[in-house]
Design a protein around this nucleic acid. Structure first.
Lengths: 352, 352
DNA sequence: AAATAATTTGGAAACGCTTCCAAATATAAA
DNA sequence: TTTATATTTGGAAGCGTTTCCAAATTATTT
């Protein structure tokens, strides 16, 4: 008969009831109420019950501002990202958010919009007490502030970055291995000349992917030709121009491996625009496994990054640090996985 | 024992300079420093300069917690979204964020993960003083709390929703007109039987799109056949199953209009899986113009929604309300635009 | 039963800032 | 010059919590 039980707070959700009123109504002191809502041991069971009841009845909600001012904790963690455009970062945030939800911690989001200088600024002011800890997603220039952060023992975790030199809590993916596996897969299909389009080389993951590609070639005794490597910046147009350049080579590659899916889409465009077909004439591989990689035509063979999981794990680590700061945390790498779809096949001359 | 000493064992947090130290060093009172950093008129130019200098020198950063406790303002606005998976919402947030950046207001992000009950909860607790205002993106059940919010005069703006009955600040897109135009475009190409796949019908925008489609048919004296309308939920699989159902009809449509791009991709899959071609056999139209709609093959004809702009405008309105609460704000609709790409053509029998 | 220990509670001092009021100073009008 | 007025400043009272200390109460031991 009742479609939903109406909770008492529905009556006047926005009325500001403070701890004082709760204390008065429950006939106890301020301190006791505070202890109850903070689950302090030293409260008689009966008193606790009574206070809780009043709390419910009055629809009391603690004021976070006051709480953190007095207690020195904000119960909030800051997430600093570059932007939200690609969906790539959205996946990571999703992981962060769902993990945070579990512990009732809030998330303050900051975007740096690719402005390097902002990054350090934000870090400084956030660490100044606005948040209890920081999650830095795909940071550009962590060197600028990691030192400060560590010096002051401010809790933070890096997501998808590496090579800061110093050992600090970080979560990433096995970029090297992923690139290695994808390259090896192409080699085993029979490809001998494999083009590569890099990401922003100021990002550790881009460097690792390049090295994974190189190692695979080396392992299989294929030459490392610099003309087959085009430096991109993770944008779709880089894929397009990069592929165009590679296909213009006197001896063009039969497969192109792009450092991310977005560039791989650019590659496919370029291939098609030349009247060639994917994968019949040119095989294409991406990296990330963003949602649309399954939706393009042909569906893209790519390397899956466990993005949501990365966010989740990083958050767990950060919450762990918050609990016991003394614990040492290093870098964690989550496994990537090759997802084979229809954008790859044996090279033409060798088709089976 | 000394009065108040720093607990020696703990590491110092990032050097906490307070207003007191600034005041002391600048040789002025607390109040004056506060006035300076709040740009209060009543400060002598020379005093202001001096205080500012000390501020700089000491690296003072205001403590937000204290600030909002004392001032009653949090300088933060809350954004409530369902999730971040699609990129659709990412675009909106981007607009919000860039606008907020301009005024130095912070953004606290809450995701409801498609849990309706959470929505009301968050709204209640956020409005309890955590934020100065609320931006509700694609709300599911605003009716549950809009009343309360308005009653208490709590500032908020709805994004991409309508039909709450009550007049309240909201920003949306001309969904009706967009669907109308797209349908009319198909009709003018010569299509007589046009399938339609709806979105989640509990969302106003989905309803509007359906009505736009219907109106266009009516205007052009085409019959409204219920068998041509399939109810989806904005997910890719709905596009697939919907299109499959439509194509199984004794008299199948020659064009299919999906209520969003993601479903349109599902439609294209279904069409191809039947050995039919887009657009030669079946024309496909989407809605939203998400980034990947330009990247699929063939590039999708769709209706562009000004997502980032919607976020931007909504934020401006909210900040406006915060400044002068008495101002009345109603619903604003930003124009959609038909983007013609290669997934549409004249129907086969009538090709030109 | 008295003495001691453990548990529970009340009270008050911060936390760092805003803001109001009144005091002090400078400026304009008389 | 004197009085009235405007400008600038200092001081103090909160804002709603947490947390420490001591007081009150209860349980345990001798």
């Amino acid at each position: 008969m009742s479609k939903k039980n109406v909770n008492a707070s529905n009556q006047a959700p926005l009325s500001k009831v403070t701890i004082v009123e709760v204390a008065k109504k429950a006939g106890v002191s301020l301190g006791t109420v505070s202890r109850v809502i903070n689950n302090d041991i030293h409260v008689a069971a009966e008193t606790r019950k009574r206070v809780l009841a009043v709390t419910q009845e009055l629809g009391y909600v603690a004021n976070r501002q006051a709480r953190s001012l007095a207690g020195g904790k904000t119960n909030t963690i800051g997430v600093i990202v570059r932007d939200l455009g690609t969906g790539y970062i959205g996946e990571i945030i999703r992981g962060i958010d769902s993990e945070l939800n579990l512990s009732g911690v809030d998330l303050v989001l900051y975007t740096t919009h690719r402005t390097v200088s902002k990054e350090a600024n934000y870090v400084a002011s956030l660490a100044q007490g606005m948040v209890d800890g920081l999650l830095l997603v795909l940071p550009r220039s962590p060197v600028d502030y990691i030192g400060t952060l560590m010096e002051h023992n401010f809790p933070f975790v890096l997501i998808d970055h590496q090579g800061t030199g110093t050992a600090c809590p970080a979560v990433g993916a096995t970029n090297w291995q992923g690139a290695y596996n994808a390259t090896e897969y192409l080699i085993k299909l029979g490809h001998q000349r494999i083009g590569f389009i890099t990401g922003s080389m100021d990002l550790g993951c881009a460097e690792d992917r390049l090295q994974g590609y190189r190692s695979a070639l080396r392992t299989h005794h294929l030459p490392l030709e610099t003309e087959l490597v085009y430096e991109g910046d993770f944008l779709q147009t880089d894929g397009y121009t990069g592929a165009s350049a590679l296909l213009d080579l006197p001896n063009p590659p039969t497969a192109i491996f792009a450092s991310n899916d977005v560039m791989a889409m650019g590659v496919m465009d370029a291939v098609r625009n030349r009247g060639l077909r994917v994968p019949n004439d040119i095989s294409v591989v991406g990296f990330d496994n963003i949602p649309q990689s399954a939706m393009v035509f042909p569906p893209l063979t790519t390397v899956q990054q466990p993005l949501e999981q990365m966010g989740r794990v990083a958050t767990q680590i950060l919450l762990g640090i918050l609990k016991k700061p003394e614990k040492e945390n290093g870098r964690i790498e989550l496994p990537t996985e090759l997802i084979v779809r229809n954008s790859t096949s044996a090279p033409k001359g060798r088709a089976g």
